[in-house]
Amino acid sequence: MMHGLINRSLQCFLRDTYGAALWGDVVAAADLPVAEFEAMLTYEDALTFRVLDAAEARLAKSRATLLEDLGTYLVSHPHNEGLRRLLRFAGVGYEDFLHSLDELPDRTRLAVSDLDLPQMELRQLSGNRYRITCSAHPPGFAHVLVGILRAMADDYGALVMLDHAGHHQQEEVIEVTLVESAFAEGRAFDLGARAG
């Protein structure tokens, strides 16, 4: 079963980026039993992939591009300030953030106990090169992660090169080169901004 949060994110991404009319088209083309996903319910996996198929056809985009855009949207769209903040709790710099990916599924479960994210593993190849391996369940997750990593680099003001290095059996591989960790100003992260 797919967590409603994932489906809801996909829905909000399509609606906020391409408009309500496109989302309506997707609902019809994917033959969804509901007009909107609820974040706190779960759905058959097949529904998610029908939405992706329909959106790809409508937008003439590849699955990889669509998922990467979704990842970027999750971090950079003003509607998702809450999520961006949760990710920024990972650390002071982009490197800290990379190293926190290992514990991202656990952190996620602390917040939403039934939301299982694929396990991710970071390996430092050399001083500034990293390889992230993540499980291919759900398939395409690594493309979303590339979008998140790219947007978080902007957020931290880091300059990175990202490369989805393809599938390896049940795993997907992303290569990250951290060119400069303090390349630009980045966005502010005030610990107490949302508190209280």
């Binding site: 706190m40 949760l86 709790f89 939403v112």
Partner: peptide
């Protein structure tokens, strides 16, 4: 971690 949890739980609660 506690601040993270407070925010995460607040978001989940809102949802």
């Amino acid at each position: 971690e506690m601040l993270y949890l407070i925010e995460a739980k607040t978001l989940a609660m809102e949802a």
